[in-house]
């Protein structure tokens, strides 16, 4: 039945959204290329149907078969609705994915997106989505380097409680330079450092706040 495929796509998108709401880490499933292509095929079919019905309707009108013409009109209308619905479903699916890409770009702080993401996740993205992600990350970097540099837009969105926090090192990260000296980040060691200095390292998963 027309619209079934699109329904499948929407259900898939919904599942992805729910999964992401539950966990706090954004994971993007593989782009369902096949399904999208099938839906687009269906759309072309629908388009052809509509044209056909329109023709029929006109010839019937000319021949004076008004009852049949009304049936054609109804079929025409149903097909047009299916077409519109398919379009909305496709766009909705793509919008959800692009929104997730956006949040991915924010979370990863614009740092070499392509370097870290390409290995695991890039296979899940289509070529166009990769391009989009790259452009968006660039845009974010531009935004942050404007007059809002001091604010650090991608910083934590929970209100700061203290300036100095205890952190535990989860991964070896080498030396970092802060205002209060040099820290050598060795795994499992603990430091009492300024939050704004290590914000980025926490986001990247090198440090854990305790």
């Amino acid at each position: 039945m027309y619209g079934d495929l699109a329904n499948k796509l929407v259900i898939e998108a919904k599942r992805t959204a729910q999964l992401n709401n539950r966990g706090n880490k954004t994971t993007l499933p593989v782009h369902n290329d096949e399904l999208v292509r099938d839906i687009i095929k269906e759309v072309t079919q629908l388009k052809r149907n509509i044209e056909f019905f329109k023709e029929q309707e006109e010839t019937m009108n000319e021949n004076g078969e008004y009852a049949n013409s009304r049936i054609m009109k109804c079929q025409h209308f149903v097909n047009a609705l299916c077409l519109e619905r398919n379009k909305r479903c496709l766009l909705g699916y793509q919008k959800l994915r692009s929104d997730m890409l956006d949040s991915l770009a924010w979370e990863n702080n614009g740092m070499d997106m392509l370097g870290t993401v390409s290995s695991e996740e890039n296979s899940n993205l289509t070529h166009h989505e990769q391009e989009y992600l790259k452009k968006y990350s660039e845009l974010l970097t531009d935004m942050k380097s404007g007059e809002l540099t001091d604010i650090d837009l991608s910083g934590s969105l929970t209100p700061p409680r203290e300036i100095f926090i205890d952190v535990r090192v989860l991964k070896d990260a080498g030396e970092i330079q802060t205002e209060y000296g040099v820290f050598n980040l060795i795994k499992d060691s603990q430091f009492f450092v300024r939050q704004s200095d290590v914000e980025r390292l926490i986001q990247q998963g090198f440090l854990q706040k305790i």
């Binding site: 687009i40 793509q94 289509t126 166009h128 989009y132």
Partner: peptide, 13 residues
């Protein structure tokens, strides 16, 4: 818009 165009819209009537 470019993303939408490339993936979906340009395949539609």
């Amino acid at each position: 818009l470019k993303l939408f165009n490339d993936t979906i819209l340009k395949h539609l009537p």
